[in-house]
């Protein structure tokens, strides 16, 4: 197991490359979904305030 994590002496490089990749991938998914949810909420609020003004 330790041998696996050591990656023949390249452990630091291999694991940091994989970590950065997956942190960035996860962040991209998270930002995309949050952006969609925010857009939806904002449009909903705009719509409600418009309905209030027009009786």
């Amino acid at each position: 197991m330790n041998e696996f994590f050591a990656m023949g002496g390249y452990g630091t490089y291999v694991w940091s490359a994989y970590s950065i990749s997956f942190v960035v991938l996860a962040a991209t998914v998270w930002f995309a979904r949050r952006n969609l949810a925010n857009t939806r909420e904002r449009l909903k609020r705009q719509r409600l305030s418009k309905q209030d003004r027009t009786p």
Binding site: M7, G8, G9, Y10, Y13, V14, A17
Partner: peptide
């Protein structure tokens, strides 16, 4: 040549 380093 690159050992396990190539796995990147």
């Amino acid at each position: 040549v690159q050992g396990d380093g190539y796995r990147i």
